[in-house]
Amino acid sequence: MPAWLLKLAAVLVTGLAAAGSAGYVSRHVKSDTAPLHPPVAAPATTVSGAGGGHLNLKPSVQSSSDQQPITFTSVS
């Protein structure tokens, strides 16, 4: 095989690899809004109560300010 053919093949492979990489990168631009770490469990929401206390409920807790309770927790 002539040497010039090997050189031409090497140039073509290098050029195709560079062009392919540039195309891939341009189609996958980094998002500035992408998270830097995996999502974690949502934190508890803190609400200041009318009486001066602080209520914290994680999303797994269902609550309603409209529903009347049948009983309540209290200090005893």
Partner: peptide, 24 residues
């Protein structure tokens, strides 16, 4: 089960709640 808790109503399902304090 609707239970009064911290000024609102929470719904309990196979759960417990308790209060501890020095006001009584």
């Amino acid at each position: 089960w609707p239970v009064g808790f911290g000024g609102t109503t929470i719904f309990l399902h196979d759960q417990g709640v308790a209060t501890s304090g020095s006001r009584s």
